[in-house]
């Protein structure tokens, strides 16, 4: 049997590399009984369609950015909520709390999560140093979802919507002056071409998730099922390690190329934490019971 697997990110991304290893592991463990063909960089379905394509069995398996689904339920988006989980340890604890809820929500759509791997923690890219939240005031700040727009408003920055592909141009023309993203994205898009400072504020640790269609999975031979689950567990462990290595390596690449890497001042951290708390208060007003349960489990 051959499975086509659409993924959104390019071959240079560690997520894609991890998934290719996962596919090799499955093929090796099943003696080729299950071969997974990885279609990277949206080459099969656009990112926005991948989850639904797995749901309707156009493809048996696929990867997507988990918090894309936060409009369906805020439970999906807790890993992208600023300053809730800001380290790999926090992120691991959050995933532990999130996993049963996400599994249950996805089960309603006939999907089963196989594994989830985080991006490196998100840092702040600016021209010039940011010593306190006040320094963000008035800056044109890239916002691509509701949470970031709210963040910008609380930091008294001006939110600007810029699509990912337009980032370099947006910086070079002054359309935006600050953004929050991972060191991976920063290094891969050669952020030194357009910004001078990277502040490691570790705002949040978002994740990608790999899901399989439950009915297709159930149709597999039990031994093959076992092989997939084993390979998935290995991919999750390996992916988290790859992510940590990536964070260190890509931060170093940025430093080597002349970006000043800044550890945030206490004042900045305190200010950002206050914004995070204000946002969480608002989050609580609209969150589902499931989403709140995750936060509760995570905080205790």
């Amino acid at each position: 049997e051959t499975w086509d697997m659409p993924t959104p990110y390019g071959d240079a991304t560690f997520h894609t590399q991890n998934i290719r290893t996962f596919a090799e592991d499955v093929a090796a463990a099943t003696d080729g009984a299950l071969a997974i063909t990885v279609h990277s960089a949206n080459s099969l379905f656009p990112h926005a369609e991948i989850k639904n394509a797995v749901r309707s069995r156009q493809v048996p398996i696929g990867e997507f950015f988990l918090s894309r689904l936060s409009n369906d339920d805020l439970a999906y988006g807790l890993d992208s909520q600023p300053f809730v989980a800001t380290s790999y340890d926090d992120a691991a604890r959050l995933w532990e709390a999130q996993k049963p809820v996400v599994t249950e929500l996805l089960a309603k759509e006939g999907l089963m999560p196989l594994f989830s791997v985080p991006w490196p923690a998100q840092g702040l890219y600016t021209n010039g140093e940011i010593k306190a939240v006040d320094d963000l005031a008035g800056l044109r700040f890239r916002a691509y979802n509701a949470a970031l727009e709210e963040f910008a408003a609380l930091a008294k920055a001006a939110p600007v919507q810029v699509e990912a592909a337009d980032i370099p141009q947006a910086f070079s023309t002054g359309q935006v002056e600050a953004m929050i993203t991972s060191p991976s994205t920063g290094a891969n898009s050669k952020a030194w071409d357009f910004v001078t400072h990277y502040t490691a504020i570790d705002a949040w640790v978002p994740k990608n998730i790999v899901v399989v269609n439950q009915r297709v999975f159930d149709g597999l031979d039990p031994a093959v099922q076992e092989a997939v689950l084993t390979a998935a567990a290995a991919a999750e462990t390996r992916g988290w390690e790859m992510s940590k290595a990536e964070a260190a390596e890509k931060t170093k690449v940025m430093e080597e190329n002349g970006i000043t890497i800044v550890q945030p001042s206490e004042e900045l951290v305190a200010g950002l934490q206050a914004i995070g708390e204000a946002m969480l208060e608002k989050w609580n007003e609209t969150a589902s019971d499931e989403a709140k349960a995750i936060l509760e489990a995570y905080n205790n």
Binding site: A48, N52, R55, R68, L69, S70, N71, D72, K108, E109, N145, A146, E149
Partner: peptide, 9 residues
């Protein structure tokens, strides 16, 4: 059936 929504603001 699944109540799908767009991911934007």
């Amino acid at each position: 059936h699944y109540g799908d929504t767009s991911p934007g603001m």
